[in-house]
């Protein structure tokens, strides 16, 4: 009998636990547009929240692939403390490098998946390139927060799982003429679903055009 009582108690406790309303998952959504209203893709919207300490020394990992002499993705936002791998799935060698003050590194001529991961331990922009294929260019945006998202082709974004509290929401784009801190918007703790739109002015794009034909190597 005591055993039956204990079992019932545990079941009741479990039931109560399951019946507790889960904390509302806050989300922030909106759009990023140019002053004339055209959508801006590949803008990174992020919360100014300190990053959680790595649990047990485990760092987040991410990946920038090299396919058809292109970095994929061309823009990778990560939280500070992330290890990024750079596999090369082309059949030619690449020499990945960055001379950015945020993170300077080089991976000598290689192909395949054998290059060691690189730790991005400082907040900022890291521009990466290939020393052989000069048009290959990518950006790793190292953020102080794990709460970020990237706008789609329509300039829309949704940032889920926003923790409770008051925060600053910021937007960044590689060609933005506005500093991220000048785009800051306050998110109040009471808003379960917030809608925040941004307007950015972008400088004209002029990337080095790629070479896809037979003359691409070296």
């Amino acid at each position: 009998m005591p055993g039956q009582f204990l079992n019932r108690s545990w079941l009741a406790l479990l039931g109560l636990t399951l019946m507790q309303p889960a904390p509302a998952a806050r989300s922030v959504s909106g759009s990023v547009t140019a002053p004339q209203g055209s959508p801006i893709a590949d803008a990174v919207v992020f919360l100014q929240v300190p990053p959680p300490a790595p649990a047990g020394g485990q760092h987040p990992t991410a990946l920038v692939d090299q396919v058809e002499k292109t970095f994929v993705p061309g823009l990778l936002p990560v939280v500070v403390g992330t290890y990024v791998r750079f596999p090369n799935h082309d059949q030619v060698q690449h020499h990945v490098y960055s001379f950015s003050p945020t993170k300077s590194f080089e991976l000598p001529l290689y192909k395949g998946e054998s290059a060691p991961p690189v730790l991005f331990d400082k907040v900022g922009v890291v521009k990466i390139g290939c020393n052989i294929h000069d048009w290959m260019s990518g950006i790793i945006l190292v953020l102080p927060t794990p709460h970020f998202t990237v706008t789609d082709a329509n300039g829309k974004y949704v940032l889920d799982d926003v923790p409770d509290g008051n925060y600053t929401l910021t937007v960044w784009h590689a060609r933005s003429n506005v500093k991220p801190e000048d785009t800051a918007r306050q998110i109040e703790g009471r808003d379960d679903v917030a809608n925040v739109d941004f307007t950015l002015t972008l400088s004209p794009a002029r990337a080095r055009p790629a070479v896809h034909g037979s003359r691409a190597d070296p």
Binding site: S100, T102, G124, V125, I139, L141, A174, K179, A207
Partner: peptide
């Protein structure tokens, strides 16, 4: 001084 979120120009 390096602007933290500034992208170096090609």
């Amino acid at each position: 001084a390096h602007a933290q979120y500034e992208v170096e120009k090609d």
